[in-house]
Design a protein around this nucleic acid. Structure first.
Length: 472
RNA sequence: GGCGGCAUAGCCAAGUGGUAAGGCAGAGCUCUGCAAAAGCUCCAUUCCCCAGUUCGAAUCUGGGUGCCGCCUCCA
């Protein structure tokens, strides 16, 4: 079986992936706080993990993927007060918006999307356990995690407790024993949504929901814990402290963090206000192009976005798709025949590219390298056809590679536009026949007029030695 | 101040000890009524700078410089 190398933030190096259970991959990816519109930055992890899952399944693994919604949160409460709408309605609205945007990217949904509001018993249970074990303390109606009680604190973010205390830039809650302690449970102020607990009415702090919900759906020491690299500290560090203090076992085996999407060198962030709406983008560009762009750099590097970026990236993407579309037409016309040496050589190269593609993804899901291989396939097959190669087996092999890798795994192949009827096709055929006749008669003026006017309608005509082709 | 990361052609981007993938843009050629598409060729003696290790470094070590992220909500 293909060995997969994964960069683990915990150890700061690539490691061979060994699943907790043979043949199964368990994944927890931190989701969003649904209080405003989904932006491009949210799309990156979703597409990256979609590809990781598809790749694992191509290799024969089963995947189980959990992504949470933090639907109980200060920002949602603030929004709720502003609009005079119940907090859970706000989150419901944005959860729907988030899911719709992700569907528009062609990603497969997670197996479970747990919400904080529906997991209070689990969260409270976990907090109680931490209090019992002496890792947390109650102060008035609040409960804090006592960081000093967890000796491994800082192991993910490589922070030292002393430095953290000094680095504290915010006012420390006087109820805390230690500046670095963080809230597990917060007492509700009047008018705020609240849930009953042993410590009075309140709501969970940030972090604890992920510990409680990952434990519920994935158990201890599950395979992958993912999220943006800005979550390494404090979010993931705190999750580790809570979960591992409570269970006594490892939270997750591999920590996979993706880079940010930047706008003009600066992180896309709602608080900065430089966000690109995903809904807008999915309206303007095909999902396969958006995926192509999001996967064009390795998932750990930062990715730039600026106006016109998709148009730039779109040229390469179009060449890939054109090559595939033309290949399909030629393949359907081609016949099986005995392989010539040229055929064999091409076939050999294709098989080689196939292996290289898998190696690229097996090496820490290197989609950028995978695209490099894909373009080698493009050149190989285009060159083969250019030199007159028309053997079905060869074209079929290239077609299968495109379909499987560019299509099934990466999801960047544009699917055929569903024609609502055969009418358009029939009309186009008629038009092209007429134009061919005009060209034969050297009436180029009229022939060009047809082409130009069709171009005006968004239909492109290409004359090839095998006859004309058209595309929308 | 602490921690983590990054710096490769005009732009994007792989490569992490063996002599610089791939894409875009650009130049030339082939094909073509023209165009488009496609093919071929060219396009970094060099990988931020300076030392060092090594037969050999973009890749390792040390020291700089610049940029990004985190330390406060954040994918």
């Amino acid at each position: 079986m293909t060995k997969i190398q994964v960069y683990n933030t915990m150890t700061q190096k690539k490691e061979e992936f060994i699943p907790r259970e043979p043949g199964k991959v368990s994944i927890y990816v931190c989701g969003v706080t649904p209080y405003s519109d989904t932006h491009l930055g949210h799309a990156r992890p979703v597409v990256v993990w979609d590809v990781i899952k598809r790749f694992f399944r191509m290799l024969g693994y089963e995947t189980f993927h959990v992504t949470n919604f933090t639907d109980v949160d200060d920002k949602i409460i603030a929004r709720s007060a502003e609009e005079g709408v119940p907090a859970l309605e706000i989150s419901k609205r944005y959860i729907a918006e988030y899911l719709a945007s992700m569907d528009a990217l062609g990603v497969e949904r997670a197996d479970v999307y747990p919400k904080v509001s529906e997991h209070m018993p689990e969260i409270i249970g976990l907090v109680e356990k931490l209090v019992e074990k002496g890792n947390a303390y109650v102060a008035n109606g609040d409960v804090f995690f006592h960081v000093a009680s967890f000796p491994d604190y800082g192991k993910l973010s490589k922070q030292r407790l002393e430095e953290l205390r000094e680095g504290t830039r915010f006012e420390v809650d006087p109820a805390k024993k230690d500046a670095v302690d963080f809230a597990l449970w917060k007492e509700a102020k009047p008018e705020e949504p609240a849930w009953e607990s042993p410590w009075g009415d309140g709501r969970p702090g940030w972090h604890i929901e992920c510990s409680a919900m990952s434990l519920k759906y994935l158990g201890e020491a599950f395979d992958f814990h993912g999220g943006g690299d800005e979550l390494i500290f404090p979010h993931h560090e705190n999750e580790i402290a809570q979960s591992e203090a409570a269970t006594g076992s490892e939270l997750a085996r591999y920590w996979v963090h993706h880079g940010m999407v930047n706008l003009k060198d600066t992180k896309m962030s709602k608080s900065i206000g430089n966000v690109i709406s995903l809904r807008e983008l999915t309206k303007r560009y095909p999902q396969e192009l958006l995926r192509f762009y999001l996967l064009s750099a390795h998932y750990r590097s930062a990715l730039e976005y600026y106006e016109g970026k998709l148009e730039e990236v779109g040229k390469g993407w179009t060449r890939l798709n054109d090559s595939f579309r033309h290949l399909k037409i030629d393949m359907e016309r081609a016949e099986e025949k005995e392989l010539t040496d040229f055929d064999k050589k091409t076939l050999e190269n294709l098989v080689q590219f196939e292996e290289e593609f898998i190696s690229a993804l097996a090496d820490d899901f290197n989609t950028a390298r995978a695209f490099g291989v894909l373009f080698e396939v493009v050149r190989e097959v285009n060159g083969y056809k250019h030199q007159g190669g028309r053997t079905r087996q060869v074209l079929q092999k290239a077609f299968d590679i495109f379909q499987k890798f560019a299509g099934d795994v990466l999801g960047v192949l544009q699917t055929e536009q569903a024609q609502d009827s055969g009418l358009v096709e029939a009309l186009m055929e008629l038009l092209l026949e007429l134009r061919q006749e005009l060209r034969k008669q050297k009436n180029f003026a009229l022939a060009d007029q047809i082409r130009d006017q069709l171009a005006g309608l968004g239909v492109t005509i290409e004359d090839t030695p095998e006859g004309p082709r058209w595309k929308v």
